[in-house]
């Protein structure tokens, strides 16, 4: 049995007669870095809020670290950077972080939190005097204060400049390297690609795609070739063919992801790969992604 950090089953959230999240099921394994990708208003924040127990699903069930997100024992093991949270007034950076450290049983040292958020030089500044990007990094330090097993980052880089962004992702990667589960939301495919080992695409409150970044990229910018493979076909053989970004096995049925399926099919035939029942698909995600990309451009 796998060790799940998050289990959501058949969750629906209705707001004023509209389904913000529609029958969503998702499980996240401990130690993985998952990006919830989708345009604004797709239901990412609603989903995260339900996982965190901030809002109640209309139907369906949510489990965080095997329990109810409203339990103190669960909250002690999570941290989150939420959207639209301003800084607390009349406290310095170090005081704010230190206050959060005291909420948790096993906090990270203050110096380390200042360092990972890149705020060591600003430690004595009033938090309200920080720039927008610095305030977001302070939010990250607060989210990380309790050394959380599951870290939620809701649109974390909004308001950050390029340097802040890079520093931020480096830090998140370091956290991920320590076996932490990280769930982030973004509407930038590149960001998701850079950091996540799994991308879940959400649009109109529904899960429209779920896979590794290369699978997602292939389905969005490319196509797939599916066939029943002969006995001589192995994973190594397939990955040895240029143009294959990913291979997915289902019994003897294999799906290859590629940005250029026309060239790939020629290559497969030329190499004499044993194939039956070949299907070349344009992928149903294209449309979802077109809307995604177009709304990302609007920002």
């Amino acid at each position: 049995m796998k060790d799940w950090a998050i289990q959501i089953s058949n969750v629906t959230k209705v707001y004023k007669g509209k389904k913000a999240v529609n029958d969503l099921s998702l499980t996240v394994e401990k130690g993985s870095v998952v990006a919830l990708l989708g345009p604004n208003g797709a239901g990412k924040t609603t989903t995260v809020s339900m996982i965190l127990g901030l809002i109640q699903p209309t139907s369906g069930s949510v489990k965080l670290l095997g329990g109810d997100p409203k339990e103190r024992s669960v909250r002690d093991r999570i941290g989150a950077m939420l959207q639209d949270v301003s800084v607390i007034e009349n406290l310095t950076v170090a005081e704010t972080i230190d206050l959060f450290r005291h909420y948790y049983k096993t906090p990270l040292p203050l110096a380390q939190l200042l360092q990972i958020s890149g705020l060591t030089n600003e430690r004595s500044k009033m938090a309200s005097a920080l720039s927008g990007g610095q305030q977001r990094r302070l939010g990250f330090a607060m989210a990380a204060a309790g050394d959380p097993e599951v870290l939620f980052l809701d649109e974390p880089t909004v308001g950050m400049d390029v340097t802040s962004r890079q520093l931020f992702w480096d830090t998140v990667k370091a956290m991920a390297g320590r076996g932490r589960t990280i769930v982030l939301t973004t509407h930038y495919l590149e960001e998701a690609d850079q950091i996540a080992d799994r991308i879940v695409v959400i649009n109109d409150g529904r899960l429209v795609a779920d896979g590794t970044p290369s699978q997602i990229k292939a389905t969005t910018i490319g196509r797939t070739i599916t066939f029943t493979a002969g006995s001589s076909v192995t994973n190594e053989v397939l990955y040895g063919i240029s143009g294959v970004t990913d291979a997915e096995w289902n019994g003897r049925r294999v799906r290859l992801y590629s940005s250029d399926t026309d060239r790939l099919i020629a290559e497969l035939i030329m190499r004499g790969v044993e194939m039956k029942d070949i299907e070349i698909q344009s992928g149903g995600l294209e449309e979802a992604f077109r809307s995604l990309v177009s709304s990302a451009k609007e920002d």
Partner: peptide, 15 residues
């Protein structure tokens, strides 16, 4: 202020 600035929401996910 803490409610309008999201603080109370953030505190709800702390222990």
């Amino acid at each position: 202020r803490e409610r309008s600035q999201g603080w109370s929401r953030l505190l709800r996910i702390t222990p």
